[in-house]
Structure formats: C-alpha cells, structure tokens
Design a binder for these strands. Structure first.
Lengths: 401, 401
DNA sequence: CGACTTTTTTTCGACTATAAAACAATCATT
DNA sequence: AATGATTGTTTTATAGTCGAAAAAAAGTCG
C-alpha cells in the first residue's frame, strides 16, 4: 500500500533523481540537470553541492559557452570506489571490476564444465576471482562499493536464497557472501540484471514499459514497468521460459512439459533440425551458425526448424504482449540475438498476428545492444542502483581513494 | 520515469492516504486514522479538518470510551454526492446509482439480445437509464460526482476509445459521454473495474500482488501490483483470455486459435461435454449446473470435461503465476466462481503442478466474494478512486445536497 | 568598453510534518 | 465526590523542503 510521506522523502527522491541523471549522463552540468529533472536551479545547486561534499559527484572543467557563463562540469566521481559484477551463466562464470563510471578495469572468466555447478564451488570460484583481481589492481576490499551477482534462478528471502530448478539449486544459500569478502553483496536473477543493463546503457534506454527476453539454451525475461524492474510478491516475476504454450509437447529440464524453452531454446531447435541423436553439447554456437547457414541455402529441414522458432517465439512473445502491454520488446540472449539479427521483421509480424490487435499494433521489437557482456555489467549495476535509490549517503565513497 | 517531488506532493499524498482510509473504513476516528497511516495526530487533525470543510468527510457522534476521551466519529459524507456505475457485460448492461458510501439507491438492467450490441445503442441505453434513475431519485445530474463505465474490451487514448474484438468494437468512440449527461465519465476495462471492487471490498482486500481472473463465456483478468491495478503502456495489460496455451487448438471468436477462452470458457466446456451440435445460447448457466450435476453423478463425459477445465485453467493460471508472481489468485466470473466453489483445491493443486516450485508454493487461490454485482460496483469506484487519488478538491461535493 | 546572455548562488517566502505541550473528556479508585 | 490515570484532539514551536526572485559570476558580441 502507499506509505505516508514527509518533507524528508521529498529530498531523498530529488537527490536520487539528480544522482541518477548525473550517473546516466556523465559528464553533465547543473543547468542540464535542472532542465532534465524539472527541478529549480536553486535546488540543483543545493543538492549537487551536498553530493560533491559527500564524494559521489566530482566537479571539474567547463563546457564551452555560447553567449553566457560557462557551465561547470559535474560528473561521476569515477575513482571514488570500485564495483564488481559477477554473472553465473550456463557455461561460465564471468567477473569484472569496474570503476564508478563503469569502465572495466579487470575481467575474468571461469568455465563451468559439468553444466551443473555446485553452489559451494560457484561461491568459491567467485570469491577467488574477486580476491585475485583486487590484488592485481592493488585495491583493498574496503574500496569496493559492492558486488552484484547475477544468478540463473529465482532469488528470494531478501536476496539470500536462490532457486534454480534447471541447475539443481533448491534454496541455495548465498547469505554469507558479503562477510567472506568484506564487500556488500547484492544478488539478483541474471535476466533481470541483464535487463537493467539494457535499460541503463542499451536498447531499453528510456523505455517505460518494456519486456526483454533472453534466449539461449533456456529462455528468460525481464519486465520493465514504469521504468523499473517488475518483481512481484517475492521477486520471481518474469519467469517466461517456463510458461507453457502447449498442453503436452516435449519434456523440459524443469521436469514439466510444454515450456517455452523447449520450443525456442537453442538445443531444442538444433534437435528439431537434425534429430535428437546428434549431440551439440559444447558446440551449440557452431550448431546455430550451421542451421542459419543451411536455412539461407534453402535446406528444407532448416527452414522448418527456423520457421518453427519464429512461430513459437512469436506466439510466446504475443502472450507477453497481451499480459504486459509493453511498448518495446528487446530480443537478446546469444541465440535470440542471432535470430533477431536475421529475422526481426518476420518475428515482429508473428507477434502481431498472435497478439490482440490493440497492444500488438503498438509494440516494436528491437535487438539488444550490449551483447554477452550485458549480464556482468547488469550485475554491477545492482550496487549502484542501490546507491542511487537510497539517495547515496554511502560511507564507502568517502574512504580514501 | 520518476518525477520530481515538492512539499506540495507530500500533502497531496497524505491527503489521499487519509481520505482513502476514511472511505474504506468508514466510520472511523482521527486516532484510528493516525495509527493506520503512521501519520502524526497533528497532521491527521489538520488534514481531516480540511476534508470536513470541503465536504468530503462528515463529523458526528462519538465512539465509546474505554478509559479516556471519546473518539469523535468521522465518516464519508455519504449524501454529499451520488455516483453511478455501469457495466456493459456480455448479456446485459447493468446500471446502479450509489451514494458515496456505496449504498445502492437504484438499479436497472438492460438485456442485450443480439450478443453484439452497437456502440451507439449501448451509449443510448446507458444514457436513458441514468436519466430516468436520476429523475426517479429527484436528483439533478450536477449532484453526480461521476459515472464509471466498465466495458468488455481495451480502453485506450486516455479513456475515450474502446477496442473489443470479440463484440466487434474497433476503436469505438466514447469520448462524448460526459457532455451528453453533464456528468464526468470514467471508462475502464470491466475486468479491471471488477478487480478494483474486490480489492476494495472483497477477496483482494489488502493484497499487494494479486491476480483476479474472471471466467464466464470469455476470460479476463485484472492484475494488482503494489496494491494498484497494473496497466502497462496503453492500459491493455492483463488480457489473459487471449493468451495462447496451444499451438493450434479450437478457433476463438477473436479469430485466432489456442486462446485460453477456448479451453475454459463456459460454452467451450459445454461443447466439449455434449458436442458442438447442442446449442446452449441463452441458457449457459443451466448448462453449467447440468454438467456439474452430471460430474457429481460420475458421468464420464462430464468428468472428462471438468477435468479438462481444471487442467487447462490450472495451466493457464500457472503462466500467470510464473509471470506475475502473485501472492493471491482470486477466481471469479460466473463460471469461474462455480468451478472454484466445487474444485478450488484441485485447481490450486494443478496450478502448483504446472508453475515453478518457488512462486507456485507461495500462491494461494481464493474465491471471489462480491459475486456478479462486482462489475457495476467496480465501475462506480472509478470516480471515487479518481477523487481519492487527486486528494479530493472536488467542487461537486460542495454543491447543495 | 558596454550591453546582453547564460549559469550559478543567495535570499526569502510559502508549505509540510512532527514533537511537545496544552487541552478535553472519560474511567477507575479511593 | 475527589483525585489521578488514561486516551483523544488541538495548539504551538521548530526544522526541513522547494522555488521565485534577486544577485552575482562569467562569458559573448558589437
């Protein structure tokens, strides 16, 4: 329900508004912030000087004048702290260290061999990578604002338990993370954090109501509502990959049947092309290039399979259109992006065919822009997002840099 | 995106908070309001006296004391204005006049014979009913705070155009309504307004994240998110009845195939029971009682059909669970309510089978509480909802009563 | 050099909520 | 019946908020 408000809330909100604009448009100026937020120049000056004093924003240099006083440049205090993003994917764990302007300072990959990684192993791997990267950068863990972690499952109980049926995690405990590293940790579903990245820096910039779908081996989605991620009662909203578009259909690795994943996931499509006997494990990307090439050459089996993807994906997306009424659908994921690159127009046509006229005619499909790095980048937005929304009283920012 | 805030917004919000509590808990007292909203006694007194001066709230009488000063009663100024609710259903148009405490003062029904009513006819019928009811009540149209209208379709363009593919309305224009009657009109999708009614007075009271489904001839849904109705980009979100759970399947009246409606709608189920040759037009409710009775008697065909409803409805609901992650699902609509009355437990079991473990285990199914009147009641909440959210500077309330 | 423009800061007024004190009205107990 | 405790409501004083307007700063241009 709506909570009561007081004058303090006004400040918190406007601080967040200003900080957010600086972050997403750095470098900028006070007058620009005023125009963009609608706040008066007086308030902008007032709040900005607070933020500068606290170390979240840096002032320096001027923009050229065109007939008046020069605008003083304000920008993110990029060296005030570090932020770490980590993403547990299906084939690897990626970890990156960024400065506060999201420039990457170090990156590591940790391959997952067995498809099903144990929770303890994942935690240990991430811990080890972070420790070694910080050592390499000669940075103490106290300089790190936070660690954002994207996981391939549902995050519940305030971000400590992870449920990922497809990799065998049932209530995996991630609560001790921050203690072990001495860094505040924030955990979120990987599809959601990837969506957050596209919303800040990619194809979903400025989108108020949108859906991002990630299609790879499996299928996930992130929902943007009023410019924010939609979470639902316990943060698991948007689990599109296991919605059902068929009453029976192929078996899914979640143990059920008819899931979207089993129609549009990469290996499902490859199996449909060459039959289930030929195994693609470990070389799915090759397989996808092969089927696309065969499709371009007019191979009938490839044509059937690709047509099937467009039809099934179009249908599954039309359900999202009817239910969420988005203005934009961003198609991503390594397989989804390949499909979108070749077949965006037919896919959009399929969506409009299956969706109701009114929401269907308004929705526009676009490709994702950030590519495979989005997951780690998105994970790194978690601590920043928290910082901005809290209005940034971050003590960590004031520690010596 | 988030808008800037100022001290005025604080007042608007707290006014809305107080007014809302008075409305939904009338009669109440200042101290109760303070406890419920978290606002200080001083603020409550201050705002409440404004509301009383403006005519939205009435003071009178006292509650018994149990060891202190008596609480002064404050309540909705029920006779300060009238409000009209109208609902265009599939078989009839219902219109009711309420006072501000939602006590019904007059009610009318207008049967729709041809299944497909013309827009002009619907407008004329509603206008005529409203005029005659007001005459009967000896009330001038200037005494009416507003007319809320629920329609069986998508409402766009700020509430003036209605798209209802299944009744043949493509961009039907409802913009002149208020002028003709001299009453401010508010239009919304019928499923949404019904959901609003259950949220205020029925099974969805206090639900922050919920889904209400309405199953009759067709199927609709209203989504509650953070205690408010979810609308999406152009207010059409929640069109669950035409999401697809099958790749081909039976033809739907929307012109597509595989829609949820074609599996769980009343006539679809009756057709499945007795074959498409027996027509149930005009006696669907009889038919439903007949099939339920046959089902209780162990009739195999009825058993198959009812099992099918539970399975298909469970599957279609599980998609909503995965996508919206609700804490509660309210099952309503005339057919849905009958099913829920007999088969709520198996239905919940089916939902949990098909949904992912985590969101599935948390969701609870309940029956709707308000019955068929909810649609008209919900429509009447539209002007009140607007009044409350605006913080109620309503001039209409000050006109002589 | 002076007029004009643009950006930023300062000053001041209008509103808000709340804590604390004051006031009001009741009950319970002696 | 008097007294004190308790509960509800109003008044008063205070701190914090934004924004309009004035002032100041720092340019451009003729």
């Amino acid at each position: 329900m709506v909570k009561k408000a007081s004058v303090r809330d006004v400040r918190r909100r406007n601080r967040a508004l200003i900080l957010r604009h600086v972050w997403l448009n750095t470098p900028t100026s006070r007058s620009e912030v005023g125009a963009a937020t609608g706040l008066s120049a007086a308030t902008v000056t007032n709040v900005m000087n607070e933020l500068i004093a606290e170390g979240a924003v840096r002032e320096g240099g001027f923009l050229e004048s065109d007939g008046g006083r020069r605008r003083a440049i304000v920008s993110v205090a990029e060296d005030a702290a570090l932020v770490v993003g980590a993403d547990v994917g299906e084939t690897q764990i990626g970890v990156k260290v960024f400065d506060l302007a999201f420039r990457p300072l170090a990156a590591r990959q940790y391959p997952i061999k067995s498809r099903r990684i144990e929770v303890a192993d994942a935690r240990a791997a991430i811990n080890a990578q972070v420790v070694s990267m910080l050592a390499e950068l000669k940075a103490d863990s106290s300089r790190v604002l936070g660690l954002g972690l994207g996981v391939p499952g549902i995050v519940s109980s305030g971000g400590s338990l992870v449920h990922a049926e497809v990799v065998g995690w049932h209530g995996a405990d991630f609560s001790g993370f921050s203690d072990e590293l001495g860094i505040p940790a924030y955990i979120d579903n990987g599809a959601k954090s990837t969506t957050q990245a596209e919303a800040w820096y990619g194809a979903a910039r400025g989108v108020e109501h949108g859906v991002m779908v990630l299609v790879g081996e499996g299928a996930g989605a992130g929902i943007i509502t009023d410019g924010r991620l939609y979470r639902g009662y316990s943060s698991s909203a948007g689990e599109w990959g296991h919605t059902k578009i068929s009453l029976d259909g192929p078996h899914c690795r979640c143990g059920r049947t008819g899931c979207v994943e089993t129609f549009v996931g990469a290996s499902a499509v490859l199996d449909q092309w060459r039959g289930p006997d030929e195994t693609w494990l470990g070389r799915e990307t090759e397989g996808v290039e092969a089927i696309l090439s065969a499709w371009r050459d007019g191979d009938p089996a490839a044509r059937r399979a690709i047509d099937g993807v467009v039809r099934h994906l179009g249908l599954a997306l039309s359900n999202l259109v009817n239910l969420y009424n988005p203005q934009t659908i961003i198609v991503g994921g390594w397989f989804g992006d390949r499909i979108a690159a070749e077949l965006l127009a037919p896919l959009q046509a399929a969506v409009r065919t299956y969706a109701l006229d009114q929401p269907g005619s308004e929705v526009v499909l676009v490709r994702s822009q950030l590519g495979p790095d989005a997951a780690v980048l998105g994970a790194a937005t978690l601590p920043i997002s928290r910082l901005i929304e809290s209005g940034a009283g971050a003590e960590r920012l004031r520690s010596p840099a």
